[in-house]
Write a protein that binds this DNA or RNA. Structure first.
Lengths: 162, 162
DNA sequence: CTTGACTCTGTAGTCACTCAAGGGTTTCTA
DNA sequence: TAGAAACCCTTGAGTGACTACAGAGTCAAG
C-alpha cells in the first residue's frame, strides 16, 4: 500500500509518517518504480502502536524504548514497567498542577463578575499584584494548551520564582 | 538597572527578557553608553505581570491582550472576562483529558504486575492491540489529530480535517 | 491528452523559550 | 595599572512533535 492508505488505516496524516521515518521510529520502506513508499501489514501494526502510545501522551523517546522491547522479546520487561510508572507519575503531577491552576483562575475570575472599565477590573488588578506562586512544571505532560514549550520545563529547567 | 538585575527582580532569566523584547511584549529600553539595556521600575512591573500570567499557563498572545487592557483603562473589560473564561475552559478540558489518560495508564499498568520477559509482558500486549475507546473519541478528538487539536485550542485555529 | 488525486523532496514555521559562540564593557582585585 | 572575572551584546541554532507549503513528479480515470 502507499503512504495515503497507511495514513488512513492508522489514523495519522501523511507528513507525520514521513516524520517518523526520518526520526527512526518507522523502518525505511521499499519503493515502487515511481519512487513511492510501499508499506505492508507490519508497518500498519507498528504505526498503530506508536499512535496508541502517543495518545497516552508518551514522548517519542519513551515509545522508542517500548519498541525496543517489542523487538527483543527475551529481555526482561521490568524497564517497561518502570517507564510506565514514571509516565503515570508525570501525568499525576501535571494533574495536580492543573488543579491548582484551575483554583487560581477561578479565584481570579470571581474578582470581576461583570464588565466594567479596565481601570476597575479586578482581574487586571489581581494580576498586577503577586499571586501565591505554585511550583512550576516538572513533567513532560502538556500544559493547558498542550504546546511543546512546556516540555522544556520537563528537561531539567528548575523554575526560578525565587 | 541592567538586564541582570531586572532578571533577578522578576525571577526570569536574561534570555527570556531579550526574547520578550523581540516579541514586542516588553518595550524597547534605552541604552547606556556601552550599549547595555537600561530598565526602570515600569519594566519590573510589566515583566512581573507577564511572568505571573505565564505561571497561570496563559499564552503570550493572551497576555498581549491583557497588557492592552492594562494600557487602555477606559475600555470595557468584558474581553478580559471572556479571555479568562476561555482559558479556564482550556484548563478544564485538559484536566478531563488527563483524567481519562490516567485511567488508561493505570489500566495498562495492572496488566504487568511484575517483571517477566517482554514476550509475555501484558503492557506491550495491550499496546499492541486496540485499547477500548470508551467514548474518548468524542472529547479527545483522538487518532490522527489528537495533539494538533490541543495546539488549535491555543490559537483558535479552525481545523482542516483533510 | 488532460484533469485531478496522489506522491516526492526540501524547507520553514509553530510555541516559548534556552544555549552557545564570539565578541565588547564594566567592575573588582592584586 | 594590569588583568581577570563578571557582566553584557548580537546572531543563530536547537528543543518536540509535528504541520504547511512550494515545486516537481507519478498515476489512474475519463
Amino acid at each position: 500500500m502507499k503512504i495515503g492508505e497507511l495514513a488512513r488505516l492508522a489514523g495519522t496524516n501523511v507528513e507525520t509518517i514521513r516524520y517518523y521515518e526520518r526520526d527512526g521510529l518507522l523502518p525505511i520502506p521499499s519503493r515502487s518504480e515511481g519512487n513511492y513508499r510501499i508499506y505492508g501489514e507490519t508497518h500498519v501494526q507498528r504505526l498503530s502502536f506508536i499512535r496508541r502510545c502517543r495518545s497516552l501522551d508518551m514522548t517519542l523517546d519513551e515509545i522508542r524504548v517500548l519498541l525496543h522491547f517489542k523487538e527483543s522479546p527475551q529481555e526482561n520487561c521490568a524497564d517497561v514497567n518502570r517507564l510506565l510508572d514514571r509516565h503515570i507519575g508525570h501525568v499525576a503531577q501535571r494533574m495536580q498542577e492543573l488543579q491548582e491552576l484551575e483554583r487560581q483562575l477561578n479565584d481570579l475570575r470571581e474578582r470581576c463578575g461583570e464588565a466594567r472599565d479596565a481601570a476597575h477590573c479586578g482581574i487586571l488588578d489581581s494580576l498586577s499584584q503577586a499571586i501565591a506562586p505554585s511550583g512550576k512544571t516538572a513533567s513532560h505532560v502538556l500544559g493547558a494548551h498542550g504546546h511543546a514549550a512546556n516540555r522544556r520545563l520537563a528537561k531539567g529547567y528548575q523554575g526560578n520564582q525565587g
